[in-house]
Amino acid sequence: MIEVANLSKRFGSTLAVDGLSFTVQPGRVTGFLGPNGSGKSTTMRMILGLDHPTRGSATINGREYGAIRRPMHQVGSLLDAKAMHGGRSAYHHLLCVAQSNGIPRRRVGEVLELVGLSSVARKRARGFSLGMGQRLGIATALLGDPEVLMFDEPVNGLDPEGILWIRTLLRSLAAEGRTVFVSSHLMSEMALTADHLVVIGRGRLIADCSTAELVASSSQSYVHVKTPDVDKLIEALATVGADVVEADQSLRVTGVGSATVGEVAAREGVVLHELTLRQPSLEAAFMELTRDTVEFGGASTLQIGA
């Protein structure tokens, strides 16, 4: 479990992370979303003890990263594909990390096999493609068989096959009961991979909820209704407090769910030709949320079922 409490980081006059608090639970994939420059990487760096917080704290299983005795056994991380020396072979890169944490040498071979790099184990990392670099970074994270995994933009630069591989890996790691925390700016990817989302903008928490809840909470969600008896339905819906907009011989109803709309119509004997809950894509929901932060600066936090 990762716990971030009132975490802030100031670089000169810029407040990169501003009073951030959230918890990442084991057994599910938690996506960490935010536009570029929103403070995702800085937050991850503080969790890993690379940057010192200006205020607040970040702990993993109750300990600050620097106080973890053999961190590779507890936390595996991929910060970017280039956290390695290009002149060193994949094998030796993994070996030196393994040795520092007392991990047996045979584990190096196992993780190379796991990420599919066995055939290039003795090749220098400088010649690796971005995708191979990501795989080596993931192999490094998995060396100590840790309970907590953190990946910063793991699908960056991967081909479709590689993206599918990462998605499957992340889900299986979470299914084993591990804590999996993944940042991305690819909303569509997170929609497929993440069970839970932490969304930040300008270093502040915007949402901490399940992927489904994020989509449902969007103001772009509405009930789409088609009926030959428009006026009667509008009148009836007004009595239950729904907001109705008429467009193209159909109604766009917000404020009540599709069940309520159907029940009202049945009670009034209004014929319906169509009754659909229309939801935006995660991408659109995300854009809407982060646009709010940009427009209103300190937009209030949306906290649903966290």
């Binding site: 890993l48 003890g49 690379l50 990263y65 620097g66 973890i68 961190p71 590779m72 936390v75 991380s77 910060l79 970017d80 956290a83 390695m84 890169h93 990390v97 520092s100 944490n101 490094t140």
Partner: peptide
């Protein structure tokens, strides 16, 4: 970054 995350001391 790999060095400091594997040996935070």
């Amino acid at each position: 970054r790999t060095t400091l995350t594997s040996v935070p001391q």
